[in-house]
Simulated assay, not measured.
Amino acid sequence: MSLTIPVLPAPATAQRWRRAFPGEPVQARAARRFTAMLLDGCPLLDEVLLTVDELVVNALRHTKSGQPGGTFTVEIARWDGTVAVSVTDQGAPSEPAVTDAADDAESGRGLRTVSLLAAGWGWFGNDRSRTVAALFGTAFGEAA
């Protein structure tokens, strides 16, 4: 288990949304639309959308969520200029990690991208369920 994101409990006044999606590739677009609708007007929307896309695609490609009958859940929390996004999948034996992909590689840069866009990111879970999350916002010196 690993957790590299700062532990910041969202206050009771935080806005929270959660939605489960079928584990199908077309649902990555639905997850982006869900996020965009909720965070309309957020200055960091592009970064958050790219992060949600990367986390969803990773869940579909690398976990049981992408297998027939699989699901994943996207959760968004927003408070005081801070946005937290997380994707919970159905787990995998491997651990999410930032890798150095070759310059000509077609994949392998997702979590590196997330680590560069977000103020912090991390994961927790096991081979049955795992959550990968990222934080953005003024709590970290960024406008949200």
Rank of each mutant, 00 (worst) to 15 (best):
R18G: 15
R18L: 11
R18K: 11
A20Y: 13
F21I: 12
G23F: 13
G23T: 14
E24N: 10
E24D: 07
E24H: 14
E24A: 12
V26C: 08
V26L: 11
Q27V: 00
Q27Y: 09
A28L: 13
A30H: 07
A31W: 01
R32W: 12
T35E: 03
T35L: 03
A36S: 06
M37P: 00
L39T: 05
D40H: 14
G41M: 06
G41P: 06
C42N: 09
P43G: 10
P43E: 12
L44F: 05
L45V: 14
D46T: 13
D46C: 04
E47G: 08
E47L: 12
L49P: 01
L49Q: 04
L50D: 08
T51I: 01
T51V: 02
V52Y: 00
V56F: 01
V56P: 01
V57T: 11
V57H: 02
N58I: 05
N58A: 14
N58Q: 15
A59K: 10
A59G: 12
R61F: 15
R61Q: 11
H62D: 07
H62T: 04
S65Y: 02
S65P: 09
S65H: 11
S65F: 09
G66R: 05
P68S: 10
P68G: 06
G69K: 04
G69R: 00
G70F: 13
F72Y: 09
T73Q: 12
T73E: 07
V74I: 09
V74Q: 07
E75I: 00
E75W: 13
D80M: 13
G81E: 08
V83Y: 05
V83D: 00
V83P: 05
V85W: 00
V87I: 11
D89W: 03
D89L: 04
Q90F: 01
Q90C: 09
Q90L: 07
G91P: 08
A92P: 08
P93S: 03
S94G: 12
E95N: 15
E95H: 12
